[in-house]
Structure formats: structure tokens, C-alpha cells
Write a protein that binds this DNA or RNA. Sequence first.
DNA 1: AAGCGTAAG
DNA 2: GATTCTTACGCTT
Length: 680
Amino acid sequence: MARADSWLADGWLWDQITIGDQPPSRTACAANPSSSSSAPPSTEDCITLLRPVPATCSYYSASHTSAVVVVVVVVAFVMFVSDASCLKSHDYDCFYASVFENEDPTLRTRPLAVQQKQIVVTCNYEARRRGLYKLQLIKDAKRLCPDVVIVLGEDLTRFRNASKELYMLLRSFSWNQKVERLGFDEVFMDVTDIVDYNLALLNPHDLSNSFFCLEKDDPTVGFAFDASRPAGCTFPEGTANTSVLVPPLDELRLRLHLGSHLAQHLREALRLQKGYTCTAGVSTNKLLSKLVGTVHKPDAQTTLLPPYGDTGDGIDNVTSLMDHFEVGKVPGIGCKITQKIRDFLQQKQLQENESSLDSSAEPQPLLVGTVRNHPSINIEALTQLLSGPGTRHDTPTRVWQFLNGCDTTEVGGARDVPRQISIEDTFGRLDTEQDVIRELKKLAQSLVRRMHTDLVASDEDPIPEDTVEPDGPSRRRWLAFPKTIRLSTSLRLPRKPNAPRSFSARSSRSAPLPGWVFSTKESVNAVADRLVTEVLLQLFRKLHPGKKGWDLSLMNVAVTNMNDAASEKGGPGRDIGDMFRTQDEVLRQWSVNDGPEAGDGDVRYGGDDDDGVGDGMRIEAGTEQRPNEPAVQDTADVDVDVWESEDEDMFDDENFRCEQCAAIMPLYARLPHERWHMAL
DNA sequence: AAGCGTAAG
DNA sequence: GATTCTTACGCTT
């Protein structure tokens, strides 16, 4: 709570508005923008809320050292974006093309299109100049540009790898680790702390000869720069009045200058070390930095200059930036909301102006400014419009704030593992169980492979710390354990030519993810096959009880509900006990041959002939039943990766948890177990 | 937890 | 028009 508020309050300095002549209602509104749905702020409150910062106030003066302005650097990796040709920029698509160009630089000068199925998902600058565009049919592209180089991009591995590499480079510059990925090709960085630190380092009398320190511990690491001017482009354009040499120093401006120089340094690093050019935006929140970053597109950066808020002179760079964007371009406002607003305004216009002659349903762009300034748009109207079952309760407020350039969302912390992994494929026709099984196996293989690449830490680097591994050449351990697996399918669209927007038409079923997928013993293919026959097929039959003839167009397999072991406090392994205790579903699948003396009885997987997954919930609570110790042997034909569902004391002196497969076993089993792993 | 919807690139 | 292949998150039950 305090954090979200301080983001708003510090970023926009609402809490200090009361210094001026503002009514207290704004402070109330600002202090609690969205935390309670009880009383949405009135329109008036929010209008004033969003531009109440007179430049003459001392909000940004050096005396307010407690004020924290968040500078967010949005980096979109973009290469060879079309210049100001009529098409919109497609950072994402260009990223795919950039990856290929980086692999083979000779492609840079040729028209390059990345193909998925029958369409061009992306193409480079050269291709665009010849009329190619995103989501174009391959045959159209070939017709338009016969010499186009077409590369297949259905396998996203290379993009994922490149994305991670670039992300890691950016992350290495961060101090607070607020580095949030958006898609493969965008990164938000909250560099407030670095900016703060360097702000304090500045010599106000000689800003032009400043040094930007990149490491707290080492004052020699950094670069020289001119703090009196921003680096790169600005919004609004023109550097005439961007100088900040005259006291009293404009603190916000100075911070933004610092952010812009840091952004330039980061872009330089990306270019020199990785060979990627990119686009960046610098401002005080995610929304503004992202939007301002689009102003100058390929290989450029833009900083949103102050003043941020109504100066009384009508000069407000936030508003003037926001107002020329289309509503649908504002991040957070998608096609649904846009359409609702459009319909609303259209209806209003019809009501008021019966005989208006615009019977032509012109798709003229719906600009932020026209919506925000429209007399019938206010919080109440938006609440009416955008509320309903299934909608977020704070959507109206958020939309209104977005339209005003206000964004209180925090930059997310850096993550080592994703929250979910999914693989999907589309099909022209998928009708028989045979085909379904075949495709499911392909999907499952990719999924398991991805789990291994994304969820296991291979070598030492991240946080081995106190792990006292003996010497094993393979020092692999799982960073996260997804708890559920989900199968989604969608049928071919039932031909609705005039429907405005058919819903996703996806349906899904999920089940607990069996623990044995974390075993490194079986091959990827073996695990994948087992997943299909023992889990996915059951899910599929739940979705499609019939025998054939479903006409599926898509299948998606996902693992979700990760228990992020790595980011938990206390180091790796700390919460694994918790995890396995809550993973009873998995344990239930183990049929244990527990005779009277079940001490080290056989362990085998129960589910070969019946659906051990779907309805395997027949463990009797309270009977103190628990799986046995794994039957640890020195041979490779026994399942070892069974774990206790007991308390923390399973980590006591008598037990050992394998870092590789997370199996819990008695200490004496450790050496044979490890030998067994290495033999794989 | 399961299933759906929206939004993002 | 929609087309691809994801990832994240909120709401409802």
C-alpha cells in the first residue's frame, strides 16, 4: 500500500499539492487512487488530480530530497524499423528479424520476412520498404517482393535466448533489480535509485562536466556526461530551453536528464556488446516512458521533459503527449475498452445530434484528447460503461488515469523464472485421436524441453551459495516447480462474419503436474510421452468426450502455478518443504505398496491402467499415510524422485534432498543417488 | 484450484 | 477482416 501510494505521490508529488492552494479532496483522491472501490474519485477530483503541479511550487527543489521520482526506461529492441512511413512501428516483429540479422549480418541489407504458418509475422526495414507488413500472407509477400528472404520463425527458441541475453545485460546495470520484461522485446527499468545517487553527486556549478557513477562501490565505474542537457531526443522537441543551468535547479528536470544519459549508456551497451539497436523512453512512470519512447522510433530515445502537470500557462507536456495518441494505443486500454468508449461516444452523438450527416461509419482515430475532453466522459460515465461481470473493479479509474498519463503500477522485480510456460500450435484440421496424440506429444516434448531450459539452473552462477555440492560435473537444480498442467483447445470459429469480436473460444482443463516430470532420469521424450498418455489425454477427453471429428484449430499445453524456489527468502530449498506438502495431489499418484512393514517397500507409479491423475484423490486424510522413502538403489531402473510430504524435519540430519530432482531420501542414499544421476 | 476473459507484444 | 505464439493477470466459481 505504502509503496503504490508513494509511487503516485512521489512520482507526481500529489502529497505535496496541499502546499499550494489545492482543495484537500485531491490529496484524498491521490492518496488512495485505487485501493478502495468504495468511493471512486469524482471526475473533478481526478482532473485536478492529474495536473496540479504548478511549476513555481518548490516540489522539485533540492530541499525536497525525500521526493522520489521514478525514472522508467523502456527499452524496445528495434532494428531497422521503417522510417516515418505510414505504418505503425512494430518493435516486436522487428525483434524477430533483428535476431536473424544478428545471426547472419548479411541479411541486414536484404528484405527479410519471418514466417509462422502462412503469414509474415515480422519483416525488416528493407522488406517494409517493398510493401511487406506484419501478419501478411506469405503468398502476398512473395508476390510483392519475389526476392524476399523468408526464414521460419515458429520455433521461438532463438528469440527467447536473444531476449534473455539482452534482458540480462540490462539487468546487470540495475541496482534495485526492478527490471520487468514485457514480451520478448521490451523492458521496464526503474532506475530511481541510480538517478538519486547520481543526483547527489552532481556539482550544481559545473553540471556540464559530470560523471555518472554506475556502481555504488566503485566510483571509477561510469562515464562522463553533461547533466545540463538531456541525451537523445526530447518531447517536446527542441533543446533550446532544456538547459538547466540556472538556479533554482529544477530537480525533476535534472532527474530526467540523468535518466536519459543512463538510457543512452544502456543503449550503447546493447549495441556494442550485443549488436542490437533499440528504442528507449524516459519518464516518471511506465505508461509515460513507454509512450514517449514511441515518439522517435528506430534506434533512438526520447525523454518526456517537464513540466508534468498544469503550469497555469496551459503548457503541460504530459497532456500534450497523451492527447495525440489513439485511445487504443495507451497500454492498458485494449480493443474491448476502446470499442466500448467508441460506441458510447457514437451513441451520445446520435442522441444529441439526430440529424448529423455522418452516416458514413468512418473509422477515424479515437484520440485520447477527444475522449478526455469530451463533456460526457467522466468517471461516472466510465464506471457505467466499463463495469460489469468479469471486469476488473478498478478498470474505470485506471482508464481515466491512463487517459491522463497517470500510472501507479510499479515496475516488477527481476525474475529468474517465468510464471508459466506454454506451448501451442495451430492446425488446419485435427480430427482423429491418432493425430491428437501425435501433436500432443510434440507439444509435450517442447514443453518439457522448455522446462529444462527455463527452470533449471545449470551451472554455478546464480545462487549456489551454501550448497556444498561434492564435485558433480552436472550441477543442475530446479529453480521452480510448476504445480499444474493445463490443456487448452479451440475449435474452428463458427463462421460469424458480422460479429464484432468473437471471444477467445478457448477452453481448458487442468490437472496437477506429476512430480516425475522433474526427474532427470528419463529422457525428455520419455517424460513427454508419459505426460501425454497419463495426463494430457485425460484432459483432452474431458474437453472433447467424442471419439473424433472435433475440428480443432489449436492446442496449447501449459505448466503454471510455479512455486518459485529461487526467489524465496532463505535461499534455495528453503520452501521446498512447503511446496511438497501442498503438493498432495502429486503424492496421491504414488501408489505405495505398503505392507505391514512399509519401511522401504516398492514404489511404483500407479496410473498405468486407470486415470491416476484426474480422480486420483483417494488419500485418506488423517490416516497418517505418507509415501515411502524412495527405493534408492544404484541402478537406473527405479524411480527415485519421490519425496516426503512430512514436515521440515525431513531436512534434518537424517535426510537429504537432491538438488537435481528434489527427491528426499535418507542420507545414506545420497552417494548412490548422485552416482545414479551422473550415469544418466 | 479451475476455468474464463482481457491485454500485451 | 483475421491470420502466430506466447506471457501475465483479474474475476468467478
